[in-house]
């Protein structure tokens, strides 16, 4: 039994620039890990490399029971067991909440089976997930008619419907107000704890990270610069994480003088 996800020596290149530099990381079963770093530090890249929405340039993934990810079949299985929550929720807006949550079950069926209404088991599981994010009364409402917080909860329900071992959340609260952010994050954490799901969540708010994270990872310029408990996160370390973001380094604007004739 393998009870952790291991990233070993992961490198990701975009063209010539290295987005991730030899990242080594273990995430244990049921652990709620928060990822901090300035914009452009590689947080999204790291998350998306785990389910390989971004291909990795070199390195190795060792995923819980699946073991090493070697081929397409392994990857498909990894994605099946990995729920993803996006900043802009990325739901099919025209479809109902129920239909959206059911897409979490697609990986478990063949195309022909999934064109027919999915089995009772999947439907009940989906409804159960919707209930857990307290949206059962909205199950047949179109997603575009919901508020931002509700949409993000549908996103959680979709991830949950996969019965995942791991949930990846890419800035899930970036477009929500503070109160809704607390709601969404605590809901996500409660669910993960109850179901023993590991989670890797990238955040921009340090206080949220300290409050919710079992462990915090600090990423800067594609390198892990901090990996520890939230009480170890001193001002010194924070400074290091957020020091000289690549964007401000590259920004080199010269204001052109505009001359009116």
């Amino acid at each position: 039994m393998n009870n952790k996800l291991s990233l070993k020596n992961i490198n990701v290149k975009y063209g010539e620039s290295l987005a991730l530099k030899s990242v080594n990381l273990d995430i244990y079963k049921g652990e709620f890990v928060v990822l901090l770093g300035s914009s452009g530090a590689g947080k999204s890249t790291l998350l998306r490399t785990i389910n390989q929405l971004n291909p990795l340039t070199s390195g190795e993934l060792d995923f819980f029971d699946l073991g090493k990810i070697r081929n397409k079949k392994d990857l498909q299985n990894l994605r099946k067991k990995t729920g993803m929550i996006f900043q802009q929720h990325q739901l099919i807006e025209r479809n109902t909440v129920f239909q959206n949550v059911l897409t979490g079950r697609l990986g478990f069926h063949s195309l022909f089976r999934s064109i027919l209404p999915l089995p009772k088991f999947d439907q009940e599981l989906a409804l159960d997930c919707i209930d857990r994010v307290s949206l059962l009364d909205k199950a047949l409402v179109k997603v575009k008619e919901l508020s931002g917080g509700q949409q993000q909860r549908v996103g959680i329900a979709r991830a949950l419907a996969q019965n995942p071992s791991l949930i990846l959340a890419d800035e899930p609260i970036a477009s929500l107000d503070p109160k809704t952010s607390h709601q969404v994050l605590s809901m996500l954490k409660d669910i993960c704890k109850k179901d023993n799901i590991s989670a890797l969540t990238s955040l921009h708010q340090v206080d949220f990270a300290k409050e919710y994270g079992d462990r915090i990872i600090g990423l800067s310029h594609g390198k892990i610069v901090f990996n520890g408990k939230s009480d170890q996160l001193s001002d010194e370390i924070l400074k290091n994480i957020y020091s000289s973001s690549p964007i401000t380094e590259e920004a080199n604007f010269t204001s052109n003088e505009v001359v009116m004739v």
């Binding site: 099946k80 993803m84 990325q90 025209r94 990986g107």
Partner: peptide
């Protein structure tokens, strides 16, 4: 494309991405 990506992330295969990601978007 973002909605497609989310479906891809659930482990759906190419044909499923087409039927459940693209078709609902172009139906109207």
């Amino acid at each position: 494309e973002n909605q497609i990506e989310a479906i891809e992330a659930t482990g759906a295969n190419k044909a499923q991405i087409m039927t459940f990601g693209i078709v609902p978007q172009i139906l109207p």
